[in-house]
Design a protein around this nucleic acid. Structure first.
Lengths: 244, 244
DNA sequence: GCCGCGGGTTGATCCATGTCAAAATGCGCC
DNA sequence: GGCGCATTTTGACATGGATCAACCCGCGGC
Protein backbone atom coordinates (compact mmCIF):
# COMPACT_ATOMS: atom_id res chain seq x y z
CA UNK A 1 0.00 0.00 0.00
CA UNK A 2 2.87 2.39 0.80
CA UNK A 3 5.28 3.66 -1.80
CA UNK A 4 8.68 1.98 -1.59
CA UNK A 5 10.65 3.62 1.19
CA UNK A 6 13.57 4.57 -0.97
CA UNK A 7 11.42 6.44 -3.43
CA UNK A 8 9.52 8.21 -0.71
CA UNK A 9 12.77 9.16 0.95
CA UNK A 10 14.30 10.38 -2.23
CA UNK A 11 11.57 12.92 -2.74
CA UNK A 12 11.50 14.22 0.80
CA UNK A 13 13.59 17.36 0.97
CA UNK A 14 12.48 20.77 2.08
CA UNK A 15 15.24 22.32 0.02
CA UNK A 16 13.60 21.42 -3.27
CA UNK A 17 9.98 21.42 -2.16
CA UNK A 18 7.86 23.92 -4.03
CA UNK A 19 6.03 24.80 -0.83
CA UNK A 20 9.11 26.10 0.93
CA UNK A 21 7.84 29.67 0.66
CA UNK A 22 4.73 28.76 2.61
CA UNK A 23 5.89 26.12 5.02
CA UNK A 24 8.41 25.87 7.85
CA UNK A 25 11.38 26.94 5.70
CA UNK A 26 10.01 30.46 5.12
CA UNK A 27 12.71 33.03 5.68
CA UNK A 28 15.51 30.56 6.29
CA UNK A 29 18.75 30.62 4.33
CA UNK A 30 19.48 27.85 1.89
CA UNK A 31 21.88 26.29 4.36
CA UNK A 32 19.34 26.35 7.14
CA UNK A 33 16.72 24.76 4.94
CA UNK A 34 19.15 21.98 4.17
CA UNK A 35 19.35 21.29 7.87
CA UNK A 36 15.59 20.81 7.82
CA UNK A 37 16.10 18.09 5.25
CA UNK A 38 17.63 15.87 7.89
CA UNK A 39 14.56 16.47 10.03
CA UNK A 40 11.82 15.68 7.56
CA UNK A 41 12.57 12.26 6.24
CA UNK A 42 9.15 10.61 5.94
CA UNK A 43 5.95 11.39 4.18
CA UNK A 44 2.58 9.86 4.75
CA UNK A 45 -0.47 9.61 2.52
CA UNK A 46 -3.92 10.05 4.00
CA UNK A 47 -7.01 9.12 2.04
CA UNK A 48 -10.09 11.27 1.99
CA UNK A 49 -12.09 10.73 5.13
CA UNK A 50 -9.25 9.20 7.10
CA UNK A 51 -7.67 10.75 10.18
CA UNK A 52 -4.07 11.80 10.44
CA UNK A 53 -4.43 11.79 14.22
CA UNK A 54 -7.24 11.84 16.72
CA UNK A 55 -7.81 13.52 20.05
CA UNK A 56 -6.10 11.46 22.71
CA UNK A 57 -3.40 10.03 20.43
CA UNK A 58 0.09 10.34 21.86
CA UNK A 59 1.88 13.36 20.43
CA UNK A 60 5.09 12.57 18.55
CA UNK A 61 5.29 14.75 15.49
CA UNK A 62 4.08 17.78 13.71
CA UNK A 63 2.85 17.41 10.16
CA UNK A 64 3.37 19.77 7.26
CA UNK A 65 0.74 19.40 4.58
CA UNK A 66 2.46 18.63 1.32
CA UNK A 67 -0.74 18.34 -0.70
CA UNK A 68 -4.41 18.06 0.03
CA UNK A 69 -6.83 19.54 2.49
CA UNK A 70 -7.69 18.85 6.13
CA UNK A 71 -10.12 19.86 8.79
CA UNK A 72 -9.43 19.78 12.53
CA UNK A 73 -12.23 19.04 14.91
CA UNK A 74 -12.50 19.47 18.68
CA UNK A 75 -15.10 17.75 20.82
CA UNK A 76 -16.65 18.16 24.25
CA UNK A 77 -17.14 15.14 26.47
CA UNK A 78 -20.89 15.39 25.96
CA UNK A 79 -20.61 14.59 22.28
CA UNK A 80 -20.76 17.98 20.67
CA UNK A 81 -18.01 18.85 18.29
CA UNK A 82 -16.88 21.70 16.14
CA UNK A 83 -14.55 22.20 13.23
CA UNK A 84 -11.69 24.33 14.56
CA UNK A 85 -9.98 24.96 11.26
CA UNK A 86 -9.36 24.01 7.66
CA UNK A 87 -5.75 23.49 6.63
CA UNK A 88 -4.19 23.48 3.20
CA UNK A 89 -0.81 22.80 1.63
CA UNK A 90 2.11 24.36 3.48
CA UNK A 91 0.28 24.59 6.79
CA UNK A 92 1.25 22.80 9.98
CA UNK A 93 -0.88 20.28 11.83
CA UNK A 94 -0.47 18.94 15.34
CA UNK A 95 0.75 21.95 17.33
CA UNK A 96 -2.13 21.43 19.73
CA UNK A 97 -0.43 18.24 20.96
CA UNK A 98 2.70 19.87 22.37
CA UNK A 99 1.06 21.18 25.50
CA UNK A 100 -0.16 17.90 26.89
CA UNK A 101 1.87 15.34 24.93
CA UNK A 102 -1.40 14.17 23.42
CA UNK A 103 -3.43 15.51 20.55
CA UNK A 104 -6.48 17.51 21.46
CA UNK A 105 -8.32 17.38 18.19
CA UNK A 106 -8.92 15.11 15.21
CA UNK A 107 -7.26 15.94 11.91
CA UNK A 108 -9.31 14.53 9.03
CA UNK A 109 -8.35 14.63 5.36
CA UNK A 110 -11.04 16.21 3.19
CA UNK A 111 -9.33 14.93 0.06
CA UNK A 112 -6.51 12.49 -0.59
CA UNK A 113 -3.53 14.20 0.98
CA UNK A 114 0.11 13.87 1.76
CA UNK A 115 1.96 15.19 4.80
CA UNK A 116 5.60 15.46 5.80
CA UNK A 117 6.25 14.02 9.23
CA UNK A 118 8.32 16.30 11.48
CA UNK A 119 9.48 14.46 14.60
CA UNK A 120 8.95 16.99 17.33
CA UNK A 121 11.97 16.07 19.43
CA UNK A 122 14.22 16.61 16.46
CA UNK A 123 12.58 19.91 15.66
CA UNK A 124 13.25 21.17 19.17
CA UNK A 125 16.83 20.01 18.92
CA UNK A 126 17.31 21.76 15.62
CA UNK A 127 15.63 24.89 16.97
CA UNK A 128 18.27 24.99 19.70
CA UNK A 129 21.01 24.93 17.10
CA UNK A 130 19.50 27.28 14.51
CA UNK A 131 18.22 30.53 15.90
CA UNK A 132 16.24 31.49 12.77
CA UNK A 133 14.41 28.18 12.85
CA UNK A 134 13.60 28.65 16.52
CA UNK A 135 12.42 32.15 15.86
CA UNK A 136 10.33 31.09 12.91
CA UNK A 137 8.71 28.21 14.75
CA UNK A 138 7.69 30.54 17.56
CA UNK A 139 6.19 32.86 14.99
CA UNK A 140 4.17 30.06 13.48
CA UNK A 141 2.72 29.20 16.88
CA UNK A 142 2.05 32.81 17.74
CA UNK A 143 0.27 33.37 14.44
CA UNK A 144 -1.90 30.39 15.13
CA UNK A 145 -2.96 32.08 18.36
CA UNK A 146 -3.70 35.32 16.53
CA UNK A 147 -5.68 33.41 13.91
CA UNK A 148 -7.74 31.78 16.64
CA UNK A 149 -8.45 35.17 18.17
CA UNK A 150 -9.77 36.24 14.79
CA UNK A 151 -12.10 33.26 14.71
CA UNK A 152 -13.25 34.06 18.24
CA UNK A 153 -14.04 37.59 17.12
CA UNK A 154 -15.97 36.23 14.18
CA UNK A 155 -17.93 33.76 16.32
CA UNK A 156 -18.58 36.24 19.06
CA UNK A 157 -19.58 39.33 17.19
CA UNK A 158 -20.42 38.76 13.54
CA UNK A 159 -23.71 37.92 11.90
CA UNK A 160 -24.17 34.98 9.54
CA UNK A 161 -23.53 36.96 6.35
CA UNK A 162 -20.42 38.56 7.75
CA UNK A 163 -19.07 35.23 8.91
CA UNK A 164 -19.54 33.63 5.55
CA UNK A 165 -18.09 36.58 3.70
CA UNK A 166 -15.05 36.49 5.97
CA UNK A 167 -14.74 32.78 5.38
CA UNK A 168 -14.82 33.10 1.60
CA UNK A 169 -12.36 35.97 1.59
CA UNK A 170 -10.01 34.02 3.83
CA UNK A 171 -10.10 31.00 1.54
CA UNK A 172 -9.64 33.23 -1.48
CA UNK A 173 -6.58 34.83 0.03
CA UNK A 174 -5.03 31.51 0.98
CA UNK A 175 -5.61 30.10 -2.49
CA UNK A 176 -3.99 33.20 -3.96
CA UNK A 177 -0.92 32.66 -1.79
CA UNK A 178 -0.66 29.20 -3.32
CA UNK A 179 -0.87 30.44 -6.86
CA UNK A 180 -4.48 29.47 -7.45
CA UNK A 181 -7.29 31.71 -8.55
CA UNK A 182 -8.51 34.16 -5.94
CA UNK A 183 -12.01 34.13 -7.35
CA UNK A 184 -12.79 30.59 -8.37
CA UNK A 185 -12.32 27.44 -6.35
CA UNK A 186 -13.80 24.18 -5.19
CA UNK A 187 -14.93 23.90 -1.61
CA UNK A 188 -13.46 20.79 -0.11
CA UNK A 189 -15.86 20.75 2.82
CA UNK A 190 -19.62 20.30 3.15
CA UNK A 191 -22.09 22.99 4.17
CA UNK A 192 -22.33 21.28 7.52
CA UNK A 193 -18.58 21.54 8.07
CA UNK A 194 -18.58 25.19 7.07
CA UNK A 195 -21.46 25.75 9.44
CA UNK A 196 -19.71 23.98 12.26
CA UNK A 197 -16.61 26.11 11.77
CA UNK A 198 -18.63 29.32 11.63
CA UNK A 199 -21.06 28.48 14.41
CA UNK A 200 -24.02 28.26 12.03
CA UNK A 201 -26.39 25.53 10.90
CA UNK A 202 -25.94 24.09 7.44
CA UNK A 203 -29.28 25.53 6.29
CA UNK A 204 -28.11 29.00 7.21
CA UNK A 205 -24.89 28.48 5.27
CA UNK A 206 -26.84 27.32 2.24
CA UNK A 207 -29.34 30.16 2.43
CA UNK A 208 -26.60 32.73 2.82
CA UNK A 209 -24.75 31.37 -0.21
CA UNK A 210 -27.98 31.70 -2.17
CA UNK A 211 -28.47 35.23 -0.90
CA UNK A 212 -24.95 36.20 -1.96
CA UNK A 213 -25.68 34.73 -5.36
CA UNK A 214 -28.93 36.69 -5.70
CA UNK A 215 -27.00 39.82 -4.82
CA UNK A 216 -24.44 39.11 -7.51
CA UNK A 217 -21.55 38.71 -5.11
CA UNK A 218 -20.74 35.10 -5.94
CA UNK A 219 -21.94 32.28 -8.09
CA UNK A 220 -22.34 28.93 -6.38
CA UNK A 221 -23.00 25.56 -7.82
CA UNK A 222 -22.65 22.93 -5.14
CA UNK A 223 -19.00 22.97 -4.19
CA UNK A 224 -17.93 25.19 -7.04
CA UNK A 225 -17.58 28.83 -5.96
CA UNK A 226 -16.84 31.86 -8.06
CA UNK A 227 -16.49 35.19 -6.33
CA UNK A 228 -17.68 37.84 -8.73
CA UNK A 229 -17.48 40.86 -6.45
CA UNK A 230 -14.64 40.77 -3.93
CA UNK A 231 -15.05 44.41 -2.83
CA UNK A 232 -18.74 43.68 -2.36
CA UNK A 233 -17.97 40.77 -0.07
CA UNK A 234 -15.57 42.94 1.88
CA UNK A 235 -18.34 45.46 2.31
CA UNK A 236 -20.64 42.75 3.67
CA UNK A 237 -17.96 41.82 6.17
CA UNK A 238 -17.58 45.24 7.67
CA UNK A 239 -21.09 46.51 7.46
CA UNK A 240 -22.56 45.96 10.91
CA UNK A 241 -22.01 49.04 13.05
CA UNK A 242 -19.60 50.61 10.65
CA UNK A 243 -21.75 53.55 9.65
CA UNK A 244 -20.74 55.71 12.60
CA UNK B 1 5.71 57.35 41.41
CA UNK B 2 7.81 54.23 40.81
CA UNK B 3 9.42 52.25 43.58
CA UNK B 4 13.18 52.83 43.81
CA UNK B 5 14.93 50.70 41.23
CA UNK B 6 17.13 48.90 43.68
CA UNK B 7 14.20 47.74 45.76
CA UNK B 8 12.29 46.60 42.72
CA UNK B 9 15.32 44.71 41.51
CA UNK B 10 15.91 43.07 44.83
CA UNK B 11 12.50 41.50 44.85
CA UNK B 12 12.55 40.28 41.28
CA UNK B 13 13.58 36.66 41.31
CA UNK B 14 11.64 33.73 39.95
CA UNK B 15 13.44 31.44 42.37
CA UNK B 16 11.71 32.87 45.39
CA UNK B 17 8.46 33.97 43.77
CA UNK B 18 5.44 32.27 45.25
CA UNK B 19 3.92 31.94 41.79
CA UNK B 20 6.69 29.71 40.48
CA UNK B 21 4.35 26.72 40.45
CA UNK B 22 1.98 28.50 38.08
CA UNK B 23 4.25 30.61 35.94
CA UNK B 24 7.10 30.01 33.51
CA UNK B 25 9.26 28.13 36.07
CA UNK B 26 6.81 25.21 36.34
CA UNK B 27 8.64 21.92 36.14
CA UNK B 28 12.13 23.41 35.99
CA UNK B 29 14.89 22.39 38.41
CA UNK B 30 16.05 24.86 40.99
CA UNK B 31 19.16 25.55 38.94
CA UNK B 32 17.13 26.21 35.81
CA UNK B 33 14.84 28.58 37.64
CA UNK B 34 17.86 30.51 38.84
CA UNK B 35 18.80 31.01 35.22
CA UNK B 36 15.40 32.62 34.74
CA UNK B 37 16.35 35.11 37.43
CA UNK B 38 18.86 36.69 35.10
CA UNK B 39 16.08 37.04 32.52
CA UNK B 40 13.40 38.68 34.56
CA UNK B 41 14.95 41.74 36.06
CA UNK B 42 12.20 44.34 35.92
CA UNK B 43 8.69 44.62 37.16
CA UNK B 44 6.07 47.09 36.15
CA UNK B 45 2.95 48.29 37.91
CA UNK B 46 -0.21 48.91 35.93
CA UNK B 47 -3.12 50.79 37.44
CA UNK B 48 -6.70 49.71 37.00
CA UNK B 49 -7.95 50.75 33.57
CA UNK B 50 -4.50 51.28 32.10
CA UNK B 51 -3.06 49.28 29.23
CA UNK B 52 0.06 47.15 29.49
CA UNK B 53 0.27 47.20 25.70
CA UNK B 54 -2.01 47.97 22.79
CA UNK B 55 -2.59 46.45 19.39
CA UNK B 56 0.06 47.83 17.07
CA UNK B 57 2.70 48.41 19.74
CA UNK B 58 6.09 47.00 18.84
CA UNK B 59 6.64 43.63 20.43
CA UNK B 60 9.62 43.43 22.79
CA UNK B 61 8.71 41.38 25.80
CA UNK B 62 6.37 38.90 27.31
CA UNK B 63 4.81 39.71 30.65
CA UNK B 64 4.15 37.36 33.54
CA UNK B 65 1.40 38.57 35.80
CA UNK B 66 2.76 38.84 39.31
CA UNK B 67 -0.45 40.15 40.82
CA UNK B 68 -3.71 41.55 39.57
CA UNK B 69 -6.09 40.81 36.75
CA UNK B 70 -6.13 41.66 33.04
CA UNK B 71 -8.35 41.39 30.01
CA UNK B 72 -7.12 41.16 26.43
CA UNK B 73 -9.18 42.68 23.67
CA UNK B 74 -9.01 42.26 19.90
CA UNK B 75 -10.61 44.62 17.43
CA UNK B 76 -11.68 44.63 13.81
CA UNK B 77 -10.88 47.58 11.60
CA UNK B 78 -14.55 48.53 11.52
CA UNK B 79 -14.58 49.29 15.21
CA UNK B 80 -16.01 46.15 16.72
CA UNK B 81 -14.05 44.56 19.48
CA UNK B 82 -14.19 41.56 21.70
CA UNK B 83 -12.57 40.43 24.91
CA UNK B 84 -10.35 37.49 23.98
CA UNK B 85 -9.40 36.44 27.48
CA UNK B 86 -9.06 37.23 31.15
CA UNK B 87 -5.66 36.64 32.71
CA UNK B 88 -4.70 36.26 36.33
CA UNK B 89 -1.55 35.87 38.42
CA UNK B 90 0.99 33.47 36.97
CA UNK B 91 -0.31 33.73 33.42
CA UNK B 92 1.63 35.07 30.46
CA UNK B 93 0.65 38.08 28.36
CA UNK B 94 1.97 39.15 24.98
CA UNK B 95 2.50 35.87 23.14
CA UNK B 96 0.32 37.19 20.33
CA UNK B 97 3.05 39.66 19.45
CA UNK B 98 5.71 37.14 18.49
CA UNK B 99 4.23 36.31 15.11
CA UNK B 100 4.30 39.79 13.64
CA UNK B 101 6.69 41.64 15.96
CA UNK B 102 3.76 43.78 16.98
CA UNK B 103 1.01 43.20 19.49
CA UNK B 104 -2.34 42.22 18.08
CA UNK B 105 -4.50 42.97 21.06
CA UNK B 106 -4.81 45.39 23.95
CA UNK B 107 -4.01 44.18 27.46
CA UNK B 108 -5.91 46.20 30.04
CA UNK B 109 -5.59 45.89 33.80
CA UNK B 110 -8.92 45.27 35.52
CA UNK B 111 -7.37 46.02 38.89
CA UNK B 112 -4.08 47.49 40.03
CA UNK B 113 -1.57 44.92 38.87
CA UNK B 114 2.07 44.10 38.64
CA UNK B 115 3.85 42.20 35.87
CA UNK B 116 7.34 40.80 35.40
CA UNK B 117 8.90 41.90 32.15
CA UNK B 118 10.47 39.05 30.18
CA UNK B 119 12.59 40.39 27.31
CA UNK B 120 11.72 38.08 24.46
CA UNK B 121 15.15 37.97 22.85
CA UNK B 122 16.67 36.84 26.10
CA UNK B 123 13.99 34.22 26.57
CA UNK B 124 14.77 32.74 23.15
CA UNK B 125 18.45 32.75 23.96
CA UNK B 126 17.88 31.01 27.26
CA UNK B 127 15.54 28.53 25.60
CA UNK B 128 18.40 27.57 23.30
CA UNK B 129 20.62 26.83 26.27
CA UNK B 130 18.10 25.14 28.55
CA UNK B 131 16.10 22.39 26.91
CA UNK B 132 13.49 22.15 29.69
CA UNK B 133 12.79 25.85 29.42
CA UNK B 134 12.42 25.59 25.67
CA UNK B 135 10.13 22.62 26.07
CA UNK B 136 8.07 24.34 28.70
CA UNK B 137 7.70 27.53 26.71
CA UNK B 138 6.43 25.57 23.73
CA UNK B 139 3.94 23.86 25.99
CA UNK B 140 2.67 27.20 27.24
CA UNK B 141 2.06 28.37 23.69
CA UNK B 142 0.46 25.12 22.67
CA UNK B 143 -1.87 25.20 25.65
CA UNK B 144 -2.89 28.70 24.71
CA UNK B 145 -3.95 27.34 21.32
CA UNK B 146 -5.89 24.52 22.95
CA UNK B 147 -7.55 27.01 25.28
CA UNK B 148 -8.60 29.14 22.32
CA UNK B 149 -10.08 26.09 20.63
CA UNK B 150 -12.13 25.55 23.75
CA UNK B 151 -13.43 29.10 23.55
CA UNK B 152 -14.23 28.61 19.87
CA UNK B 153 -16.22 25.52 20.78
CA UNK B 154 -18.05 27.49 23.43
CA UNK B 155 -18.82 30.38 21.08
CA UNK B 156 -19.80 28.15 18.20
CA UNK B 157 -21.96 25.55 19.83
CA UNK B 158 -23.09 26.46 23.33
CA UNK B 159 -26.16 28.29 24.48
CA UNK B 160 -26.07 31.28 26.78
CA UNK B 161 -26.53 29.28 29.99
CA UNK B 162 -23.90 26.78 29.03
CA UNK B 163 -21.43 29.52 28.18
CA UNK B 164 -21.89 31.26 31.47
CA UNK B 165 -21.71 28.02 33.44
CA UNK B 166 -18.48 27.13 31.64
CA UNK B 167 -17.14 30.59 32.37
CA UNK B 168 -17.87 30.39 36.10
CA UNK B 169 -16.44 26.90 36.40
CA UNK B 170 -13.31 27.99 34.57
CA UNK B 171 -12.81 30.94 36.91
CA UNK B 172 -13.50 28.74 39.90
CA UNK B 173 -10.89 26.25 38.81
CA UNK B 174 -8.28 28.91 38.19
CA UNK B 175 -8.90 30.51 41.57
CA UNK B 176 -8.55 27.09 43.17
CA UNK B 177 -5.18 26.61 41.49
CA UNK B 178 -4.10 29.85 43.15
CA UNK B 179 -5.20 28.80 46.58
CA UNK B 180 -8.39 30.85 46.66
CA UNK B 181 -11.88 29.59 47.27
CA UNK B 182 -13.38 27.58 44.45
CA UNK B 183 -16.87 28.70 45.31
CA UNK B 184 -16.67 32.33 46.32
CA UNK B 185 -14.98 35.14 44.47
CA UNK B 186 -15.19 38.69 43.21
CA UNK B 187 -15.64 39.23 39.49
CA UNK B 188 -13.09 41.71 38.31
CA UNK B 189 -14.91 42.44 35.06
CA UNK B 190 -18.24 44.02 34.21
CA UNK B 191 -21.24 42.20 32.76
CA UNK B 192 -20.45 43.83 29.46
CA UNK B 193 -16.91 42.41 29.45
CA UNK B 194 -18.18 38.95 30.35
CA UNK B 195 -20.72 39.24 27.55
CA UNK B 196 -18.11 40.34 25.07
CA UNK B 197 -15.92 37.38 25.96
CA UNK B 198 -18.83 34.92 25.72
CA UNK B 199 -20.44 36.41 22.62
CA UNK B 200 -23.50 37.60 24.55
CA UNK B 201 -25.05 40.95 25.40
CA UNK B 202 -24.72 42.27 28.91
CA UNK B 203 -28.47 41.93 29.51
CA UNK B 204 -28.29 38.24 28.70
CA UNK B 205 -25.40 37.79 31.11
CA UNK B 206 -27.32 39.56 33.84
CA UNK B 207 -30.51 37.60 33.19
CA UNK B 208 -28.66 34.31 33.16
CA UNK B 209 -26.95 35.10 36.46
CA UNK B 210 -30.41 35.80 37.91
CA UNK B 211 -31.73 32.56 36.49
CA UNK B 212 -28.88 30.59 38.02
CA UNK B 213 -29.62 32.27 41.31
CA UNK B 214 -33.33 31.40 41.10
CA UNK B 215 -32.34 27.80 40.44
CA UNK B 216 -30.12 27.75 43.51
CA UNK B 217 -26.90 27.21 41.56
CA UNK B 218 -25.19 30.41 42.61
CA UNK B 219 -25.76 33.51 44.62
CA UNK B 220 -24.88 36.79 42.97
CA UNK B 221 -24.66 40.22 44.41
CA UNK B 222 -23.14 42.60 41.94
CA UNK B 223 -19.57 41.40 41.50
CA UNK B 224 -19.67 39.01 44.40
CA UNK B 225 -20.31 35.42 43.27
CA UNK B 226 -20.84 32.35 45.37
CA UNK B 227 -21.27 29.04 43.61
CA UNK B 228 -23.54 26.93 45.75
CA UNK B 229 -23.93 23.95 43.43
CA UNK B 230 -20.86 23.13 41.37
CA UNK B 231 -22.19 19.78 40.12
CA UNK B 232 -25.38 21.58 39.12
CA UNK B 233 -23.42 24.08 37.06
CA UNK B 234 -21.54 21.24 35.43
CA UNK B 235 -24.86 19.68 34.52
CA UNK B 236 -25.99 22.94 32.92
CA UNK B 237 -22.81 22.95 30.85
CA UNK B 238 -23.28 19.53 29.36
CA UNK B 239 -27.00 19.41 29.03
CA UNK B 240 -27.72 20.22 25.40
CA UNK B 241 -27.88 17.05 23.36
CA UNK B 242 -26.37 14.93 26.05
CA UNK B 243 -29.36 12.75 26.73
CA UNK B 244 -28.62 10.30 23.93
C1' DG C 1 -25.12 62.76 54.43
C1' DC C 2 -26.42 63.74 49.82
C1' DC C 3 -25.78 63.68 44.82
C1' DG C 4 -24.54 61.87 40.51
C1' DC C 5 -23.31 58.26 37.66
C1' DG C 6 -21.66 53.89 36.05
C1' DG C 7 -23.08 49.43 36.34
C1' DG C 8 -26.72 46.14 37.02
C1' DT C 9 -31.49 44.32 36.80
C1' DT C 10 -35.83 43.51 34.73
C1' DG C 11 -39.64 43.81 31.36
C1' DA C 12 -41.68 44.01 26.57
C1' DT C 13 -40.98 43.25 21.98
C1' DC C 14 -38.46 41.95 17.72
C1' DC C 15 -35.70 39.45 14.61
C1' DA C 16 -31.89 36.42 13.05
C1' DT C 17 -31.09 32.06 13.05
C1' DG C 18 -32.48 27.47 14.46
C1' DT C 19 -35.66 23.65 13.64
C1' DC C 20 -38.43 20.63 11.06
C1' DA C 21 -39.84 19.05 6.68
C1' DA C 22 -39.76 18.00 1.87
C1' DA C 23 -38.02 18.16 -2.57
C1' DA C 24 -34.02 18.48 -5.85
C1' DT C 25 -29.47 17.55 -7.17
C1' DG C 26 -25.36 15.10 -7.99
C1' DC C 27 -22.02 11.51 -7.04
C1' DG C 28 -20.33 6.87 -6.01
C1' DC C 29 -21.20 2.19 -6.62
C1' DC C 30 -22.87 -1.74 -8.83
C1' DG D 1 -26.08 3.64 -17.19
C1' DG D 2 -29.19 3.50 -13.42
C1' DC D 3 -30.00 3.25 -8.32
C1' DG D 4 -29.52 4.94 -3.81
C1' DC D 5 -27.70 7.85 -0.59
C1' DA D 6 -25.52 11.95 0.93
C1' DT D 7 -25.69 16.66 0.25
C1' DT D 8 -27.94 20.80 -0.86
C1' DT D 9 -31.73 23.86 -1.43
C1' DT D 10 -35.92 25.92 -0.10
C1' DG D 11 -40.05 26.75 2.68
C1' DA D 12 -42.79 27.38 7.01
C1' DC D 13 -42.57 28.07 11.60
C1' DA D 14 -40.43 28.42 16.42
C1' DT D 15 -37.41 30.53 19.64
C1' DG D 16 -33.24 32.24 22.05
C1' DG D 17 -31.11 36.08 22.57
C1' DA D 18 -30.85 40.99 20.94
C1' DT D 19 -32.80 45.37 21.38
C1' DC D 20 -35.04 49.12 23.54
C1' DA D 21 -36.47 51.12 27.67
C1' DA D 22 -37.11 52.03 32.46
C1' DC D 23 -35.62 51.68 36.90
C1' DC D 24 -32.56 50.40 40.76
C1' DC D 25 -28.43 50.08 43.42
C1' DG D 26 -24.06 51.15 45.41
C1' DC D 27 -19.95 53.72 45.39
C1' DG D 28 -17.06 57.80 45.14
C1' DG D 29 -16.86 62.68 45.53
C1' DC D 30 -18.18 66.80 47.73
Amino acid sequence: MNAPLSLSHLKTACSNCNLRELCLPVGLTHEEVESLDELVYTRKRIKRGESLFRAGDAFQSLYAIRSGFFKTRVATDDGRDQVSGFQMAGELLGIDGIGTDAHNCDAVALEDSEVCIIPYGKLEELARRFTPLQHHFHKVMSREIVRDHGVMLLLGSMRAEERLAAFLLNLSQRFTARGYSASEFILRMTREEIGSYLGLKLETVSRTFSKFQDEGLISVQQKHIRITDIPGLKRVMGQSGASC
